[in-house]
Amino acid sequence: MMNSFLLLQEQEQQFFVKNCEEDVRDAVESRLKTVYLISDILEHFFPMLSDTLTVMAGGNTINPEDAYLTDDKDETARPTPEAPEGE
């Protein structure tokens, strides 16, 4: 005989799947999308906004370097090839 508490749990879960699952999923998805959108906008425009505020306060903007060295471009990061034996 099955434990009645587990049967109760099963019935509750079935009720959720039948009646609320989609509503809750849609609500969570739309809330997450909104939060991500706001955070993406902030991430994208925050440097520009902080530069604007700095200039308005009488300071200078930070001039970003034209090109940043990456691991691939940085020669010092590459292991130097060993000379083949016998040479």
Partner: peptide
């Protein structure tokens, strides 16, 4: 990737249990 399929997989796995 913030992939919707991944969201749904986790949601389907845990939502009813969390509700319970």
């Amino acid at each position: 990737r913030r992939d919707a399929t991944c969201f749904r997989l986790l949601y389907d796995r845990y939502a009813a249990k969390i509700y319970g």
